[in-house]
Structures are given as structure tokens and as C-alpha cells.
């Protein structure tokens, strides 16, 4: 219990210090708008990104219930997740392509690079699936287990 109280007291103290820093360094218009952005961050996470992940996960799980799909579902799920997270991070880069404050900021062709990255991830997913199938068949053949899934 002592540890918990200590943690809580330290936490509240540091949080108040942060709040004081905000109040003392930001001017009133900025202080009024900051909570809107904080709320927006929660909405973006809890009411868009996470529900999207859960929704897509649900669709993939339903899709995989059909015969013979269960073998591919792992590769499909991982591939979609990797495509999603890299696209999320690439988004600001794609939006700002060519709008860097000078030519050394955002110097790559981010659209081409993003397409290449996603193609690589998908190719990796397909390769992973094929390797898995191949080793699965071999292990099944060597064990003599014909009837198993």
C-alpha cells in the first residue's frame, strides 16, 4: 500500500508541475485551444483508430470461419496490421510531400516509397503463408497424419 500511495503522490505532483508549466508558458488563446486538441486526440484513438482495428479484426475472423481459410488468417491479419500502422505513420509524410520548409526536409519520393513498403509487406505476408503451408504439409506427411487439419 505504501508503494501505491507513494506512486500516486509522486504522480499527482509531477502532473501538477506539468500543468503549472502549461499555465505559465502558454498564452490564454493557446490554453483555450489545447483542450480541444487533447480531446481530438482521444476521439481519433478511441472512436476511430481502435474501433477500426476491432472492426477489421472482426471481419477477418468472420472471413476465416469459412472452410480452408483458417490456414491463411494469421498471415492476412499480420499483413493488414503492418500495412495499417505503416500507412498511419506515412500519412503526414504523404500529405506534406513537396511542402517541406526547405529541400532537405522530406527529400524522398514518399508516395513511391510508401507503395514499395506496402508491396514489400504484402509480399512478405504471402511468402510467410507459403512457407507455413509448405512446412505444414511436410510435417503432416512425415508424421503420417493424413486426416488432420
Amino acid at each position: 500500500m505504501k508503494t501505491r500511495i507513494g506512486l500516486a503522490v509522486a504522480g499527482v505532483g509531477l502532473g501538477l508541475w506539468g500543468l503549472w508549466l502549461l499555465l505559465s508558458t502558454l498564452d490564454p488563446p493557446a490554453l483555450i485551444r489545447l483542450p480541444i486538441w487533447l480531446g481530438g486526440a482521444v476521439v481519433a484513438d478511441d472512436f476511430f483508430l481502435v474501433p477500426l482495428t476491432i472492426g477489421v479484426g472482426w471481419i477477418v475472423a468472420r472471413w476465416s470461419a469459412r472452410p480452408d481459410r483458417h490456414r491463411a488468417v494469421g498471415a492476412v491479419r499480420t499483413t493488414m496490421l503492418y500495412v495499417g500502422i505503416t500507412t498511419l505513420i506515412a500519412l503526414p509524410l504523404l500529405l506534406r510531400q513537396g511542402k517541406g520548409v526547405n529541400p532537405t526536409v522530406l527529400p524522398r519520393d514518399y508516395l513511391r516509397d510508401w507503395l514499395l513498403l506496402e508491396a514489400t509487406i504484402i509480399a512478405g505476408g504471402v511468402a510467410g503463408y507459403l512457407v507455413q503451408r509448405f512446412t505444414f504439409r511436410r510435417s503432416r506427411a512425415s508424421s503420417g497424419d493424413i486426416g488432420g487439419r
Binding site: T3, G11, G18, L21, L22, L26
Partner: peptide, 25 residues
Amino acid sequence: WPFPFRQTHYALAWIIVGALLVHLA
């Protein structure tokens, strides 16, 4: 965004660590 980056980034860092310690407690 309509607030200064450096000051906000620094202050939020303390708030995060504080809230994290409370969460751990």
C-alpha cells in the same frame, strides 16, 4: 496547431509521467 510546440511538448511530458505513475499506483 494553435499552440507553441516546444513549451507544450515539454509540459505534456511531465503530465504524462505524472498520470502514468497514478495509473501504476
